[in-house]
Design a protein around this nucleic acid. Structure first.
Lengths: 362, 362
DNA sequence: GGCAAACCTCGAAACGGTTCGCTGGCACGA
DNA sequence: TCGTGCCAGCGAACCGTTTCGAGGTTTGCC
């Protein structure tokens, strides 16, 4: 059904008439019904330009009559931006990531932006895939939570060209927008807390060593150990992937030995792994904290509910997500101050003491 | 900086030259560099049309030279669809919603679709807002999890006109695509399980009565009670909002009375409220399940980790999300069978027995 | 009365793709 | 030699907006 441009537009049936059911009214239909030019309708819709009260009325009533809604795809094409931001995160199993997403969505919502959610299973393949797709879609910006820690050149390239805010990642080359918590200080603090109870045989369950957060937390632990005269290099370490099952396995690795050689405390690089470790202890009949002390990191809601309550380090994911999104929006639209505000943000962490850490068995 | 159409395009600097830093290459730039028509480039990019090997090579190398990426906004405008689906959910605090989202994203990812995540705080205002915005953005379809239960006429209207899959909602007027679990049967099953332990004084913590799931679960509870000769109308009921604090408050309402008048078991319409109730019991020194039995619904991961383990009804949110997304995609692109497959799906639920339910105190 | 400044309104060129229909050239067979 | 048909490639319309420049009408002021 092609029209070969007959008389300009007059031959068209008056929209109110033969509907062509599937079609949705466009600005042109509105213009025709209202008897004005397309541009005038646009001015009315956007509140830009000068339009007399009478014309405005005609247009608005035409809009209602047709129940016209502007096509945002077209508007965005014209504007060159999709009015949405992308969030790239490893998964939604980890409540911490969910909290970050919730924070970002909260800010996006308040700014009439849409949030596109992409999960990568911590694989570089999906990370790079979504980076490109979102870029091609002209999202206004990206919030990037890497689960793999490998920032491929193509991703890095993109980070330089586009508005990207890194969360939980601070590159050696500084100057890239990023939002993190004070992981190292937090880790050092909780390790101090454990050591203050008198533990000397410590075990560490670390995160994926390619991840910045894991490195930082490990550094914090080692600083605390060294400051108490324990050589960090003698401390047994198992590495997990920040997910619960890996905590269980890591605990088995560290604890499956005679009691007198066994660590009396486990420093876990995140809560999910700490909970995995607690589950292992439960299965083995080891009591927490009497037989073994355990601490985590992140302070996910679960930490408060599990028995015993898990001592952890709070880094409010939601607020991190909010900060990331706000920073991103500032990068996109540098309304006022832009070089006054820092481009990197460190959010303080807070030790949350519950009951999973106690003095070692005499 | 307007050009007033001088010589058609020749005056333009050869793209490789003066870059205009911000600009990104378009299909026209590629065409110019490759020395072919725009349409030819399009054919190469999409693999449609007939293009000789030699020309194809010229085009692809131009594409690489410019590192051209097609503008998906433009493509989508032309196609009239955004190649993405919207997910409208109350919030991300409830792990059940997160599971649904994860399932939907999983399917979307496998189909090269983007997932737009919108949270509504269970308010009709945001529900209607996002319905319209997503429609205006020409998303291909919507997955709708209502938190308010009030489907305003404008939302209903949209549901009829667009591809929308309702989750956890079954309208009186059938024929609307929807995905649910067998809430009523599940509720009846878990109530039976509790009653089999010999409880006679029961309390119910219900969900928001405007919600279909809450109604269904309540009906299931009442059926179970009636079948054991307990008049459901005599059973004390408190209504929460499916969130944890409301469970705490509801438990206070139901349990704050002398032991001999107190329910010995609490049927909670979801896990979050059940956990709230457990927290209240913990604060009051009531032991679960010795002093009081508690059960939930949803079987969120927390249910397995809290002490004591929460007996619940599993409705795999992730799989519900997957089904919803698959159904949606089928509605959008009815490739083969379309009326053979049902448009409404009931996913079976499963009773998960843990240790929060026991016999009443003698 | 004349002129400038507002004030409205309109037409048309973008934005960056896809796709339809057409054409020029070539190989083929009669 | 001349159709015929096919293949590659081209040009232009179109998707639904925004926005610029220009034109026509009032209005205000001297």
């Amino acid at each position: 059904m092609k029209r070969k441009r007959p008389q300009p537009k007059v031959a068209q049936p008056d929209w109110t008439g033969g509907q062509e059911p599937g079609r949705r009214p466009t600005i042109r239909d509105v213009a025709r019904v209202a008897g004005v030019a397309v541009s005038t309708v646009s001015y009315v819709v956007n509140g830009t330009g000068q339009v007399s009260a009478e014309t405005r009325l005609r247009v608005t009533s035409a809009i209602h009559a047709l129940s016209y809604e502007p096509n945002l795809l077209a508007r965005n094409l014209k504007a060159g931006r999709a009015a949405s931001i992308g969030l790239i995160a490893p998964d939604l199993e980890n409540p911490y990531f969910v909290a970050v997403a919730a924070g970002a969505q909260e800010v996006a919502q308040s700014r009439d932006m849409l949030l596109v959610l992409c999960t990568t299973q911590a694989s570089p393949h999906w990370e790079s895939y979504y980076s490109h797709v979102l870029r091609a879609r002209r999202v206004d910006g990206l919030i990037f939570l890497s689960g793999s820690g490998v920032l491929t050149p193509s991703v890095m390239d993109l980070i330089h060209k586009d508005s990207v805010v890194l969360v939980d990642e601070r590159l050696p080359a500084p100057g890239l927008p990023s939002v993190t918590a004070t992981n190292r200080r937090g880790a050092r603090g909780i390790a101090d807390h454990v050591l203050e109870h008198g533990h000397r045989r410590i075990g560490i369950i670390g995160g994926p060593s390619s991840l910045w957060t894991a490195q930082q937390r490990m550094t914090g632990y080692r600083e605390a150990l060294a400051s108490r005269g324990i050589d960090p290099d003698t401390v047994p370490v198992a590495t997990g992937d920040y997910q619960q099952p890996s905590g269980y396995e890591a605990a088995r690795l560290l604890l499956d030995r005679p009691a007198e050689a066994r660590p009396t405390a486990l420093l876990c690089a995140n809560d999910l792994m700490a909970i995995g470790a607690m589950l292992y202890c439960r299965d083995q009949g080891l009591r927490v904290p009497q037989d073994i002390s355990i601490c985590g990191f992140d302070n996910i809601p679960l930490a408060a509910l599990i028995e015993p309550g898990l001592t952890s380090v709070d880094q409010c994911g939601r607020s991190l997500g909010r900060s990331a999104c706000r920073l991103l929006l500032r990068l996109i639209a540098p309304h006022d101050q832009q070089d006054t505000d820092p481009i990197e943000t460190d959010q303080p962490t807070r030790l949350v003491v519950r009951s999973s850490v106690g003095p070692p068995q005499p």
